[in-house]
């Protein structure tokens, strides 16, 4: 449940298809800051992988963003960037979309966590 406050917090950014972005912005996370930078990127068939990569890197560098929501199918396109990001903040959340159901085996967080279950850990 959300707390009511006048204190300014950090933003949630979103990278995803049209319906995901429209939905989350309708929910109330959309912002355009004083430098005219939006906190969302709508990915359609004309959006190149380099554009997505650039937007993702920008969101990571921005100090007013704490959580980045990204559609899992879009995250697949820039998997190397997501795997490189190991800092806890901003937290990168892979979210499902209406056309692409959630696949736990592709989630970078779970793959990282599963990687810890190797015989060396359990022994000793």
């Amino acid at each position: 449940m959300a707390l009511h406050s006048a204190v300014k917090g950090k933003l949630l950014a979103v990278i995803g298809d049209e319906d995901t972005c429209v939905g989350f912005l309708l929910g109330g996370i959309g912002e355009i800051n004083k430098h005219r930078q939006p906190n969302f990127l709508v990915v359609d068939k004309n959006t190149s992988v380099s554009d997505i990569e650039e937007a993702f890197r920008k969101f990571i560098k921005r100090d007013d963003v704490d959580i980045i929501l990204i559609n899992q199918n879009v995250a697949e396109l820039i998997r190397h960037c997501i795997d490189d990001h190991t800092q806890p903040i901003p937290a990168v959340l892979e979210i499902p979309s209406k056309d692409h159901p959630y696949d736990a085996s592709k989630d970078s967080i779970l793959r990282r966590a599963k990687g810890m279950f190797n015989p060396e850990d359990i022994a000793a």
Partner: peptide, 9 residues
């Protein structure tokens, strides 16, 4: 445009 929802650590 300002966000209606923010997060705080």
């Amino acid at each position: 445009t300002k966000a209606l929802y923010n997060v705080k650590l």
